[in-house]
Design a protein around this nucleic acid. Sequence first.
DNA 1: TTTGAAAGAACGTTCGT
DNA 2: ACGAACGTTCTTTCAAA
Lengths: 149, 149
Amino acid sequence: MKLDGIDKKILRFLMKDARRPILEIARNIGISGAAIHQRLKKLEASGLLSGSKFVINPKVLGYTTMAYIGIFLDKAMSNPRAVKALEKIPEVLECHYTTGNWSILIKVLCKDNEHLMHLLNKEIQQIEGVSRTETFISLNQQINRQISI
Amino acid sequence: MKLDGIDKKILRFLMKDARRPILEIARNIGISGAAIHQRLKKLEASGLLSGSKFVINPKVLGYTTMAYIGIFLDKAMSNPRAVKALEKIPEVLECHYTTGNWSILIKVLCKDNEHLMHLLNKEIQQIEGVSRTETFISLNQQINRQISI
DNA sequence: TTTGAAAGAACGTTCGT
DNA sequence: ACGAACGTTCTTTCAAA
């Protein structure tokens, strides 16, 4: 997939604000709305644009504690089964099958430390095959962005 | 901030597709467009809705290697200065100030392992005050979602 | 609070060029 | 890539339930 300068400009606009009107972008870039429309269709067809999302600020709902948890699995425990169990826990936002010490690295979002403790003791550790965990609390997320175009 | 059932339904629609027309959501939920309009304004004013983003699939652009890197900083190196340096590296998508072994945990996205190696050796390790790093390659990201409403 | 309606502006989309 | 045209959606407003 190759992007020219105009494609990149369009993407940079929409990645910041998915609701930005096409015509407004057209005016900013200096080409017609129809042209942008065509390009967006191409980008969509290529699979590069996989959708749009409203971004929510979890702090407003009281979710202030983010953490990464490295999980060690027993030999017998298959990764897919563990993932299936983790999917059912809504606090788990990401789950990665990683190289290195752990079998799995997950990112969780909790209301506070107590919530996190409960999540660890009553949810994560209770999953069959989970032998040990290592938790890293994010005291402050200082960068959060998508790939730069 | 308290959400009632209708708020939650609206959010669930928009979190999946930010471009979904309000009137269509209204029809699905069974209330008027004007009501949704009012609620969205409230949600925006509360700060819960912090914007919308087009989601890009980096694989289409050839970015297939995601990794987490734990960074050890020298005592002398202040966290803000390190973050400033990391901000300049576009491959760095997230940066967390964490408890535990490392000073900083970052998430990076690279085209391939070679790209990652270059990033580590020529960019990250070159930052003044970075003493050591530990890298965890994500072989497969199996969950990726926002907070559940 | 929500509704239904109504107005005008702005938008997405599709053409022929 | 353009510009015009059409149908839809958005925003805003208002009186009424």
